[in-house]
Design a protein around this nucleic acid. Structure first.
Length: 472
RNA sequence: GGCCCCAUCGUCUAACGGUUAGGACAGCGGGUUUUCAAUCCGUCAAUCAGAGUUCGAUUCUCUGUGGGGUCACCA
């Protein structure tokens, strides 16, 4: 029973942050595990000590936690196949390397890096693909750990395998070569380590990006050498950058996933958006909760081609998810992004309808878009004028507004009453703007602002009358 | 360049071989309570090309074209 459980993993290398491309692969692996009540493993692939970046592991864990991609086995929490950090599993790789040597599937590489580079250049000049196995040494030295250990391809054949997303895939014999298993520094290569780990950790579904399709024949030849049935492969399509048509990567400006948290996107949005970038369950619904996504997720409906990243759609989707939040949650978040001197709960609804992510509030505050709620604006005279009305007419209209508003009781000074009151005057004019524009501008001092009724209801009776009077 | 993969509106995508090729984002136009935002309504917009199979092809086959991936002691 337990043996049939779906086991997936996310295996990042600690070379910095993870971006949306990495996250989506992790997400699909997580969804697959959750959908099948399986196990999701977090494994750290730190076999390249040169590229390793301090603090990456914590940063990656923080990213996954923010997104809610919880793992069942991994660093810190452990599990039946601990440790989950490759640099702590070197003994295991060594053990498996020896098995391969004994079986005649591995040998020490006697060449220096320079010599190999030379052979590679020669092949390039002849316009032939470089294959190490064509230069395989006849009598390789015993492996003492100081030379790279290479896999020995035994059978050159066409490799055919099945992928749960793409269906049947294949590659010719040129995809098979004597690749390095253990580097001269003693660390295993990705090609070797991840296969050993996947075997030992009983991973059933290897979810990975399509950049690994080309090297799959190598992985399969390794499984074969060990006499182990390979796991199922689940290959995800790439996410393309929004401008060009390149696969999104750090070099093309892919952002740290935690930047999206800083900008005020909801984790639910990222999950929803990323799932649907390369997957669609059919139907017209697009906004889904995390639980709904787990239910509808289906490998058969994963796309095969790359999908361009689109910030507009992401923003739209984030707004949709924000609308689903309970009111208290919205209030709390908006107040969190407002400086202490501007934390007026009355302006919360006004702010909410103008943002698509919490971080927008910060920018609006920086642009001073809310200052008029707290300090009376200085109004340029000519801007009070609506179209080609005379100053006298505007002044007179403002007086009418003041009288009408004065008539309202302080307790009734709410949005509806103000609107009714002012509209009854405005409707009698040639154009409503002759009244509404100057009132709005007198209250806000801005070309773009909320409507006059809303502003007045927030400012309150006294302040509203004061500003209108001042404008006259 | 070799090998592998992919191809529907600008973008993300839907469509048992039979639909006026649908939806969403963006764009554009309009309504609502001046403007902006929000919201509602409307609108523009696609099957890469050419053969073949078929009564019928977005869908199946082949070729071409275009795009992507990969060819490390990186993962």
């Amino acid at each position: 029973m337990l043996e049939n459980k779906v086991v997936t993993r996310f295996a990042p290398s600690p070379t910095g942050f993870i971006h949306v491309g990495n996250v989506r692969t992790a997400l699909y692996a997580w969804l697959l595990a959750r959908k099948n009540n399986g196990q999701f493993i977090l494994r750290i692939e730190d076999t390249d000590k040169v590229r390793e970046v301090e603090g990456s592991i914590e940063h990656i864990k923080k990213s996954l936690k923010w997104l809610g991609l919880n793992w069942d086995q991994g660093p810190d929490i452990g599990g039946p196949h601990a440790p989950y950090i490759q640099s702590e599993r070197l003994e295991s790789y060594k053990k498996h390397a020896k098995i391969l040597i004994e079986k005649g599937f591995a040998y020490a590489d006697p060449y220096t890096e320079e010599e190999i580079e030379k052979l590679r250049k020669e092949a390039e000049l002849e316009k032939k693909p470089f294959l190490y196995r064509e230069h395989r040494p006849e009598n390789p030295p015993a492996w003492d750990g100081t030379k790279p250990l290479r896999f020995k391809v035994s059978e050159l054949k066409r490799t055919v395998w099945n992928d749960l997303v793409w269906g049947e895939l294949s590659a010719g014999p040129e995809a098979l070569d004597d690749f390095v298993l253990i580097k001269s520094d003693g660390y295993p290569t990705y090609n070797f380590a991840h296969v050993i780990d996947d075997i030992e950790m009983k991973v059933t579904h290897v979810v990975r990006g399509q950049e690994f399709i080309a090297s799959t024949p190598k992985f399969l030849s390794l499984y074969e050498a060990f006499g182990v049935v390979p796991p199922l492969f689940v290959t995800t399509p790439p996410i393309m950058s929004s401008d060009g048509k390149k696969k999104l990567g750090k070099r093309d400006g892919a952002k740290d996933i935690l930047d999206y948290e800083k900008e005020g996107y909801l984790p639910e949005t990222m999950i929803n958006y990323l799932t649907f970038l390369g997957f669609n369950p059919g139907g017209e619904k697009e906004v889904y909760s995390r639980e709904e996504i787990i239910n509808i997720f289906d490998l058969n409906k994963v796309q095969h081609s790359g999908a361009q990243w689109n910030d507009d759609k992401l923003n739209w989707m984030n707004k949709e998810h924000m609308k689903l939040l309970p009111q208290e949650e919205i209030n709390k978040n908006i107040l969190k992004y407002l400086p202490t001197d501007k934390q007026n709960s009355k302006i919360v609804p006004v702010i909410f309808e103008r943002i698509s992510k919490w971080g927008d509030i910060k920018e609006m505050v920086e642009r001073g878009e809310f200052d008029f709620f707290f300090n009376a604006p200085v109004c340029a005279k000519e801007k009070l004028i609506f179209k080609n009305c005379s100053p006298e007419k505007i002044s007179n209209n403002l007086k009418l507004a003041i009288e009408a508003l004065k008539a309202l009781d302080e307790k009734d000074f709410d949005l509806e009453s103000i609107k009714t009151s002012l509209m009854s005057i405005a409707n009698k004019l040639d154009s409503r703007g002759e009244l509404l524009h100057p009132v709005r501008f007198a209250l806000s001092g801005l070309d773009k602002s909320p409507d006059p009724f809303t502003i007045a209801s927030i400012l309150g009776k006294n302040e509203t009358l004061f500003r209108l009077q001042k404008a006259i």
